[in-house]
Design a protein around this nucleic acid. Structure first.
Length: 418
RNA sequence: GCCGGGAUAGGCUAGCUUGGUUAGACUAGGGGACUGUGGAUCCCCUGACUCGGGUUCAAAUCUCGGUCCCGGCCCCA
């Protein structure tokens, strides 16, 4: 028997229905915020992802040569494709540009809880604007998405990578070592960071002040301790968030979000219930378009780990009940089967989801199937009723039955649907 | 890439320590008992030892390796 490749999953109908349901909520939030959906290829020129990537990223890239010898990679994330698309086809659209996407991404990693080789991201990019409102808009949408899942136990943390980068440069860390230092700070590995910094000739009091900065963690009130432009900027972001009704955020200047292209505000959200892979959302402001041959344009974006946030909702005990069909049509006797077919067709053309027994089952078994299919109604087509052009309409949850004229059946069922 | 735990019908499992019947039960699925009423009962049927090598007269059971799953580390654009 052939199984799914490592780190991939099949989604059976019940699971798929649930995923579509939650996906729909995310789409609806994005639409609510004025974002419009895009779609980009699942694979791209490998160069798109290699351009700004370190060796660790490359190790996890699904890259291969196609039959024409082109270097191709399955997308490991969707920000770069979205910005490529912006540069290629949207650069002259009115600003700001608000786009979102949903799709699978691929990373060659060791699978574990909440981590798959094929996983799904829902993300958004707000392109062409560089204001505190921009960042607040994006963060508040991310918060709305998390809330749309009904999640209760989560944390949103906001930082500013510009503050850190600037301080690191000021205290004399060579540019090529910045990433290394940021990584230690992200993990709050101060015991490792200190000797590293000392080795670069950074003074002890400067190291302390740097650590103090990354330890600026807590409610929005800790922002009063952050000096300079970045401090002013974050204070404004937080004011706008508050105006948007988003107050449950924390400040954590130690949030670094990897080592890549982020330049200003960064944020992430986590669901502690998830264990090792608990980050459900991450984003920030960046400039990327100049890398792909466009002008330098400021953007703010984020992505939600769809599989993880779904997992988090499940762990909080949320259950999704599959919908089921409106009606299941069955024949009492074989000579009613053509009539049943006519009736199911009339229901379907009235927009009612309807199924019909096609296995020639006896009533008892057909009703059992209708029950398993979660049908709201069973439509029983028998000779007795047909004498008056009627059928029996059975409410599957209450068991109540009534005679309904065949021509009234669609409106009868549709009328009770709401 | 590293450490640890696992894998028996579609699902959940018994058997494994101590090798030896036709690998058992429950559930699900198909049919029937019940010739016009579901989630009940009974009967019949379908269906599994993750894969490959080794030890042995004999392997689900012992052993080695692969694959996949689970938890953690690393990484996480």
């Amino acid at each position: 028997m052939i199984q799914c490749p490592r780190g991939t999953r099949d989604f059976l109908p019940d699971e798929m229905e649930k995923r579509r349901f939650y996906e729909g909520r995310l789409r609806s939030v994005a639409g609510n915020f004025g974002f419009r959906e895009i779609e980009t290829p699942i694979f791209e020129d490998a160069e798109l992802f290699i351009l700004r990537s370190g060796p660790n990223v490359l190790k996890e890239l699904y890259a291969f040569k196609d039959k024409g010898g082109r270097d191709i990679a399955l997308r490991p994330e969707m920000t770069a494709p979205a910005i490529r698309m912006f540069v290629n086809g949207m650069a002259n659209e009115p600003k700001p540009i608000k786009i979102f996407y949903f799709g699978q991404c691929f990373r060659y990693e060791r699978p574990q809880s909440g981590r798959y080789r094929e996983f799904f991201q829902f993300g958004a990019e707000l392109i062409g604007s560089y204001t505190p409102e921009t960042d607040a808009e994006v963060i508040s949408m991310a918060a709305a998405m998390i809330k749309s899942f009904g999640l209760k136990n989560y944390k949103i943390r906001i930082g500013h990578i510009g503050v850190l980068r600037q301080r690191i440069a000021e205290i004399g860390v060579p540019k090529e070592n910045t990433a290394e230092v940021l990584q230690k700070l992200d993990k709050k590995l101060y015991e490792e960071a200190r000797p590293l910094l000392e080795g670069m000739g950074v003074a002890a009091e400067d190291i302390d002040s740097l650590f103090e900065l990354t330890e600026t963690v807590g409610g929005t009130e800790v922002l009063s301790k952050v000096p300079g432009e970045a401090g002013d900027y974050l204070r404004e972001v937080v004011s706008f968030l508050s105006a948007y009704g988003v107050d449950d955020v924390e400040i954590d200047l130690g949030v670094v979000r990897g080592l890549d292209y982020y330049t200003g505000m960064v944020f992430e959200a986590e669901a502690p219930a998830l264990g090792a892979e608990k980050q459900i959302c991450g984003g920030g402001s960046y400039t990327l378009s100049e890398l792909f041959g466009g002008e330098k344009v400021f953007s703010t974006g984020f992505a939600v780990g769809f599989d993880r946030i779904l997992l988090a909702a499940e762990k909080e005990g949320q259950a999704y009940e599959p919908k089921g069909i409106d009606a299941y049509v069955l024949s009492v006797t074989d000579d009613m089967r053509l009539k049943s077919a006519e009736i199911v067709a009339s229901l379907r053309s009235a927009g009612i989801s309807a199924d019909i027994d096609i296995m020639g089952r006896k009533m008892a078994k057909a009703l059992k199937y209708a029950s398993a299919a979660r049908a709201k109604y069973a439509v029983i087509v028998g000779a007795k009723e047909m004498e008056t052009g009627s059928v029996t309409l059975r409410d599957m949850s209450s068991g109540e039955q009534k005679l309904v004229k065949a021509e009234d059946l669609p409106s009868e069922i549709a009328g009770n649907r709401f």
